[in-house]
Design a binder for these strands. Structure first.
Length: 878
DNA sequence: GTCTTCACG
DNA sequence: ACGTACGTGAAGACT
């Protein structure tokens, strides 16, 4: 018994399968990776199952093969590979090379033929053979030693169908070699192999099962039934024979193939580690046991101990021009890493005579002398330092965000990869889930590497980032908006917002009462108890048990989203109850209970505002999200009553009126729009008046709401489909509205067209303040993706400019408040709204500051109008 | 971890 | 024919 085992993979076929079977996926460079990812998933799954000792991957070549010579039109109608897949082929080969997986390809042969040949030779040499392909043609190679494995992706999971010769017979009623006969009779559209007209799968199987081959069938052609098939076979016999040759996989290719070279070695090499890292294949990283490759720079990482040595270090740092810093916290300050030269990278721990205060004091002195002090998360460092000279502080993460806001992370290892071409391990890679303190004790070397890398990357990347900001015209945005904003956001987070805990509890309790009532009524109406929160169970109740008409479906079942249920509200009394239940449980879980968990000792919620998340330049809010507190429905809106100012303060809330439409008026420079917005109070009403040619005071509520939807549509990147959804009308009608709008405001149409055109040319869009967003989707061959890119190109300059404007306002409002040494403070930003907790004695000043700084944040072709209210809670101030 | 739903601008 | 309105974050169910 010989237990040698070899796996042969049909490279192109598996890449294709993976590409079409998996959702689009890109790495941080914008490279498409779904096919490579899928290929590797299948590869690892097969290797895990097989315990094979040999492996080879075969690829097609672009050169014509003997089949083309035989039949000029072979694969003739085949479509060009989409660009997104094409670019992955060389990447795949590189990855395989890095894992020392042998790749075989030869001009004049397809991968099938190479695999056929290798499989035959391997079997002769006593191997167990596994052939992995997505293509059923390869079933002809199956024997009792050669297994054909066909992977299928079902719901994100890969399952493999296995076929030995007997399995082929069972599944297809023919032997493996007869698979060729079947294909010759049926033809193959994807390879453009002609079949015998009128013979489909059923007839072909019957004929071959009975006669064994095309030749034998032709010899007994008189007996073939039905008549149509008989005549067709007679007329097309020659062609069928040629098709058979085309469909036959060669098993005697002239190739140099040495089984020794196919032996599987260590797949998880250093080079493979780099490749996987570059492709962002985090799922596979755990397979690497190799010590993470050491980088040259690690040799210069030092932990400095002893007071004199630390003094020496800081003295030397005072001479530096630029430096990078990383404060290391563990409840309190644990130490600091500092880098001020390619060989001066150290960690200083707070212990003994080297106290926290001492470290902070020394670092502050360095900040006051260097030209550039760089951090990766400056906001986190502001607890320890005070503002240095204007323009000294530099946040490398924010700089990288401006250069490409589409990344999902700006950690030190991401910046190192992108800007220093340095592939270094993440904190997770080095320390796992250990805290800094634990890591310092248990893995001192890894800890030192980790924190020194942080400071080093901040130091080393800053110059490159600054240069790139200049090249892309974003230096001013960075210097005058984003960097000062770090302080404003820090102040806002530190201030927090006061919440009335008791009132919040009462609100939650009241909701709970109603939830229980509704539960009872719903179970009664349904006739059984079930989990109303489970869309799956709810769908079964509504659409199967109660037999309500089901409109939309999701991937996994019936859709029970609110817009679907609203259409069913009159069909059954259970539906309105479910809608109310949904609304109230949302309020209870996310808001009443959710917010309560975030109230600190001081009775306030200190949420986080993130500056490097959104694609458009907005800030986002987490832990908790304070930017989605209910307002649209009264019941939800009531929760704003628990957001209260402290004693002797009031809430002052100011929001921009229709800022995005005003930005649009400015950008489009449409004369009529500018005029309309300059003197109109109600923008949607005047839009309706002009678009529907109705005098302003005769505009009906319906006309106004239609105009409002069109205005939304324009801002979102108009499409007739989208508008038809928004208005529940036909696409045709929606298209007519859009045309009418564009006729009324031709400047808007011109602007939107140019935005898309420009983005297609340059690959990105910009705001009036220079903020960029790349739009890689515009290059996609997929219609859906490309259309999305077009809408993005229309929307981002608008949403982005509005984000820029309120950021400028925040910086200036915060500055004014601090300059005048007011007790009042900025506590929230909600995209077009600022909330200030103002001292009673300062209300007039605060109102004046908000008004002047917000409306003065940008000089547009239309005025920026502000609505402002004052009250004893956020609720009262809106 | 992914999907669905729903809260906001 | 394809199948979408733009930008977010959190909770609960399910795998």
């Amino acid at each position: 018994m010989n237990d040698k085992k070899i796996v042969l993979i049909d490279g192109n076929s598996i890449l294709n399968r993976a590409f079409y079977g998996l959702p689009d996926l890109t790495n941080s460079e914008g490279l498409h990776t779904n096919a490579v990812f899928g290929f590797l998933s299948i590869l690892f799954k097969v290797l895990d199952e097989e315990h094979a000792d040999h492996l080879t991957v075969a690829f097609d070549r672009k050169e014509p093969t003997f089949r083309h010579e035989m039949f000029g039109d072979y694969k003739g109608t085949r479509k060009e590979m989409p660009e997104e897949l094409k670019e992955q082929v060389p990447v795949m080969k590189e990855v395989l090379k890095s894992m020392n997986v042998p790749v075989i390809e030869k001009a004049g042969y397809e991968a099938d033929d190479l695999i056929g040949t290798m499989a035959k030779r391997a079997e002769e040499e006593g191997y167990q053979v596994s052939v992995v392909s997505g293509d059923r043609d390869l079933l002809q190679l199956a024997t009792d030693k050669v297994k054909i494995r066909i992977p299928k992706t079902k719901k994100g999971r890969t399952e493999v169908e296995d076929y030995y010769a007997k399995d082929v017979l069972e599944a297809y009623q023919v032997s493996p070699v007869q698979i060729i006969e079947l294909k010759a009779l049926m033809g193959d559209q994807s390879d453009n192999i002609p079949g015998v007209p009128g013979i489909g799968e059923k007839t072909a199987t019957r004929i071959i099962a009975e006669y064994g081959s095309i030749e034998n069938a032709f010899g007994n052609v008189a007996d073939i039934k039905p008549n149509k098939a008989r005549e067709s076979l007679q007329n097309h016999y020659d062609m069928a024979q040629m098709s058979k040759k085309l469909a036959t996989i060669k098993t005697d290719c002239e190739i140099d193939y040495d089984f020794q070279e196919a032996e599987i070695g260590n797949l998880f090499t250093e080079e493979a580690y780099r490749q996987f890292k570059r492709l962002d294949f985090k799922n596979f990283m755990s397979r690497f046991e190799v010590e993470i490759p050491a980088n040259r720079v690690e040799g210069y990482f030092h932990k400095i101990t002893g007071f004199n040595e630390v003094e020496e270090l800081f003295a030397k740092a005072l001479e530096a021009e630029t430096a990078g810093f990383q404060f290391v916290e563990q409840g309190e300050l644990f130490g600091a890493a500092i880098a001020f030269g390619d060989k001066d990278i150290c960690f200083v721990q707070a212990q003994g005579f080297v106290t926290k205060e001492y470290i902070i004091d020394k670092i502050q002195k360095i900040l006051d002398t260097v030209k550039r002090a760089s951090f990766i998360n400056l906001k986190e460092a502001l607890i320890y330092i005070s503002p240095a000279n204007e323009g000294t502080l530099f946040d490398a993460g924010i700089a990288a965000y401006l250069l490409n806001p589409l990344k999902n992370s700006y950690e030190y290892e991401d910046l190192a990869k992108e800007y220093l071409s340095l592939l270094i391990p993440s904190r997770q890679d080095m320390l796992g889930k250990l805290s800094y303190e634990k890591a310092e004790e248990e893995k001192p070397e890894a800890f030192l590497n980790c924190v020194c890398y942080m400071a080093y990357v901040a130091y080393a990347a800053a110059g490159i980032l600054e240069e790139k900001l200049k090249e892309t015209g974003m230096e001013s945005l960075f210097r005058t908006v984003e960097m000062p904003l770090v302080q404003a956001i820090y102040d806002m987070e530190t201030a927090g917002i006061r919440v009335d805990k008791e009132q919040l509890k009462e609100y939650g309790d009241a909701l709970q009462v109603r939830i229980e009532e509704l539960e009872k009524e719903i179970y009664e109406a349904a006739g059984e108890q079930f989990n109303i929160n489970s869309p799956k169970q709810l769908g079964e109740i509504l659409f199967e048990r109660l037999k309500l008409p089901h409109a939309k479906k999701t991937k996994t079942g019936y859709s029970t989203a609110a817009d679907v249920l609203e259409k069913l509200a009159s069909e059954h009394s259970i539906v309105p109850m479910i809608l109310e239940y949904r609304q109230i449980t949302k309020l209870k879980s996310t808001y009443a209970d959710g917010l309560a968990n975030y109230i600190s000792e001081d009775g306030r919620i200190h949420g986080k505002f993130n500056q490097t998340i959104t694609a458009t330049g907005r800030i986002s809010s987490t832990e908790p999200n304070l930017q989605n507190i209910p307002i649209k429905m009264e019941l939800g809106r009531l929760i704003r009553k628990v957001f209260i100012p402290e004693q002797d303060y009031v809430m002052v809330d100011a929001d921009y009126s229709q800022i995005e439409l005003r930005v649009l008026a400015h950008l489009s420079n449409d004369e009529r729009l500018i005029k309309a917005y300059s003197d109109a109070k109600d923008i949607h009403r005047i839009t309706a008046s002009q678009v529907f040619h109705t005098p302003l005071d005769e505009v009906t509520p319906l006309q106004r709401s239609n105009a409002k939807a069109v205005n939304f549509g324009i801002v979102y990147g108009i499409s007739s489909f989208g508008l038809s959804q928004g208005l529940s009308i036909s696409r045709k009608e929606a298209g007519e509205y859009i045309n009418q709008y564009f006729e009324t405001y031709p400047g808007v149409k011109k602007f939107l067209d140019e935005a898309v055109e420009n983005a297609k040319e340059t690959g990105y869009v910009t705001t009036i303040f220079g903020r960029r967003r790349p739009v890689p989707e515009l290059k996609s061959s997929n219609f859906v993706q490309r259309s999305f890119g077009e809408r993005v190109a229309m929307n981002s300059p608008i949403q982005g400019a509005a984000a820029d404007i309120i950021k400028i306002a925040m910086v200036n409002v915060n500055k004014k408040i601090k300059e005048r040494k007011l007790k009042s403070r900025l506590i929230l930003q909600v995209h077009d709204e600022l909330l200030v907790e103002a001292h009673k004695d300062e209300v007039d000043q605060v109102r004046e500051i908000l008004l002047s700084e917000m409306s003065g944040a940008a000089d547009l072709a239309v005025p920026l109008e502000i609505d402002m209210h004052t009250g004893d809670s956020w609720y009262e101030a809106k």
